[in-house]
Deep mutational scan, measured.
Amino acid sequence: QVALSRTQVCGILREELFQGDAFHQSDTHIFIIMGASGDLAKKKIYPTIWWLFRDGLLPENTFIVGYARSRLTVADIRKQSEPFFKATPEEKLKLEDFFARNSYVAGQYDDAASYQRLNSHMNALHLGSQANRLFYLALPPTVYEAVTKNIHESCMSQIGWNRIIVEKPFGRDLQSSDRLSNHISSLFREDQIYRIDHYLGKEMVQNLMVLRFANRIFGPIWNRDNIACVILTFKEPFGTEGRGGYFDEFGIIRDVMQNHLLQMLCLVAMEKPASTNSDDVRDEKVKVLKCISEVQANNVVLGQYVGNPDGEGEATKGYLDDPTVPRGSTTATFAAVVLYVENERWDGVPFILRCGKALNERKAEVRLQFHDVAGDIFHQQCKRNELVIRVQPNEAVYTKMMTKKPGMFFNPEESELDLTYGNRYKNVKLPDAYERLILDVFCGSQMHFVRSDELREAWRIFTPLLHQIELEKPKPIPYIYGSRGPTEADELMKRVGFQYEGTYKWVNPHKL
Rank of each mutant, 00 (worst) to 15 (best):
residue 381 Q to A: 13
residue 297 A to M: 12
residue 414 E to I: 13
residue 298 N to C: 13
residue 452 S to Y: 05
residue 364 A to G: 11
residue 393 P to H: 07
residue 429 K to P: 13
residue 260 H to A: 03
residue 336 A to G: 09
residue 339 L to S: 07
residue 327 R to A: 14
residue 473 K to W: 09
residue 309 P to G: 12
residue 285 K to L: 01
residue 340 Y to P: 00
residue 342 E to V: 12
residue 430 L to S: 11
residue 423 N to R: 12
residue 315 A to Y: 13
residue 405 K to V: 10
residue 267 L to C: 08
residue 335 A to E: 00
residue 469 I to M: 13
residue 505 K to S: 15
residue 301 V to Q: 07
residue 487 T to R: 14
residue 341 V to S: 03
residue 406 P to R: 07
residue 319 Y to S: 00
residue 368 L to M: 11
residue 465 L to H: 08
residue 493 M to V: 15
residue 484 R to H: 05
residue 333 T to G: 02
residue 307 G to H: 08
residue 493 M to E: 12
residue 304 Q to G: 00
residue 467 H to W: 10
residue 503 T to L: 14
residue 372 D to N: 11
residue 396 A to P: 02
residue 500 Y to A: 06
residue 420 T to R: 06
residue 309 P to K: 15
residue 405 K to N: 13
residue 474 P to M: 12
residue 369 Q to A: 06
residue 439 L to W: 11
residue 414 E to P: 10
residue 322 D to P: 02
residue 422 G to T: 15
residue 303 G to V: 04
residue 384 R to I: 02
residue 325 V to R: 02
residue 353 L to Q: 03
residue 304 Q to I: 01
residue 413 E to Y: 07
residue 375 G to N: 13
residue 457 E to R: 07
residue 320 L to H: 12
residue 354 R to G: 03
residue 288 V to G: 05
residue 482 G to Q: 08
residue 262 L to N: 07
residue 378 F to V: 05
residue 490 D to G: 08
residue 475 K to G: 11
residue 468 Q to L: 11
residue 332 A to Q: 08
residue 445 S to T: 11
residue 302 L to N: 06
residue 369 Q to W: 01
residue 431 P to M: 06
residue 445 S to K: 13
residue 299 N to H: 13
residue 334 F to L: 07
residue 305 Y to F: 11
residue 475 K to H: 15
residue 428 V to D: 15
residue 438 I to L: 11
residue 412 P to N: 13
residue 325 V to T: 10
residue 430 L to K: 11
residue 408 M to S: 06
residue 465 L to S: 08
residue 362 R to C: 08
residue 325 V to D: 02
residue 256 V to Q: 02
residue 366 V to Q: 01
residue 289 L to V: 10
residue 276 T to P: 10
residue 434 Y to D: 01
residue 291 C to F: 09
residue 467 H to A: 13
residue 302 L to M: 13
residue 374 A to C: 09
residue 386 E to T: 04
residue 387 L to I: 06
residue 347 D to N: 13
residue 264 M to C: 06
residue 332 A to P: 13
residue 464 P to Q: 09
residue 336 A to I: 08
residue 339 L to V: 12
residue 302 L to A: 07
residue 318 G to V: 00
residue 411 N to L: 06
residue 396 A to R: 02
residue 333 T to V: 00
residue 284 E to N: 08
residue 400 K to F: 01
residue 418 D to M: 04
residue 293 S to A: 12
residue 272 K to M: 09
residue 475 K to W: 10
residue 440 D to S: 05
residue 470 E to W: 08
residue 396 A to C: 11
residue 313 G to F: 11
residue 446 Q to M: 09
residue 355 C to E: 01
residue 367 R to E: 04
residue 330 T to V: 14
residue 422 G to V: 15
residue 502 G to C: 11
residue 360 N to K: 06
residue 302 L to D: 02
residue 410 F to M: 13
residue 471 L to F: 10
residue 405 K to Q: 15
residue 421 Y to L: 11
residue 448 H to C: 05
residue 415 S to G: 15
residue 417 L to T: 07
residue 361 E to N: 07
residue 290 K to V: 03
residue 459 W to P: 00
residue 472 E to M: 12
residue 358 A to K: 00
residue 285 K to I: 04
residue 423 N to P: 14
residue 488 E to P: 10
residue 307 G to N: 11
residue 410 F to S: 15
residue 334 F to A: 08
residue 305 Y to R: 02
residue 311 G to V: 09
residue 286 V to P: 00
residue 474 P to T: 14
residue 347 D to V: 07
residue 450 V to C: 04
residue 395 E to L: 07
residue 275 S to A: 06
residue 282 R to V: 02
residue 352 I to Y: 06
residue 285 K to P: 01
residue 316 T to K: 13
residue 382 C to H: 13
residue 327 R to Q: 13
residue 457 E to Q: 12
residue 335 A to I: 05
residue 333 T to A: 00
residue 321 D to F: 06
residue 487 T to S: 13
residue 328 G to E: 14
residue 258 Q to L: 05
residue 492 L to R: 01
residue 412 P to T: 11
residue 353 L to V: 08
residue 305 Y to D: 02
residue 259 N to P: 01
residue 362 R to D: 00
residue 443 C to M: 14
residue 277 N to K: 13
residue 256 V to W: 01
residue 312 E to W: 11
residue 505 K to E: 13
residue 292 I to A: 09
residue 476 P to Y: 00
residue 329 S to W: 00
residue 297 A to D: 14
residue 260 H to S: 03
residue 270 M to K: 03
residue 360 N to S: 08
residue 269 A to K: 01
residue 415 S to A: 12
residue 479 Y to T: 02
residue 507 V to L: 14
residue 479 Y to K: 01
residue 312 E to Q: 12
residue 312 E to F: 13
residue 403 T to G: 09
residue 411 N to I: 15
residue 401 M to L: 08
residue 401 M to D: 03
residue 304 Q to W: 01
residue 312 E to A: 12
residue 279 D to W: 09
residue 430 L to V: 09
residue 349 V to T: 07
residue 366 V to G: 00
residue 308 N to I: 08
residue 369 Q to I: 06
residue 446 Q to R: 02
residue 278 S to T: 08
residue 436 R to Q: 07
residue 344 E to H: 07
residue 376 D to P: 10
residue 326 P to Y: 06
residue 504 Y to I: 04
residue 497 G to P: 00
residue 470 E to Y: 08
residue 479 Y to I: 04
residue 314 E to Q: 10
residue 437 L to K: 01
residue 360 N to V: 00
residue 332 A to N: 07
residue 421 Y to S: 03
residue 374 A to D: 15
residue 320 L to F: 09
residue 299 N to Q: 13
residue 485 G to F: 04
residue 344 E to C: 08
residue 264 M to T: 07
residue 287 K to Q: 09
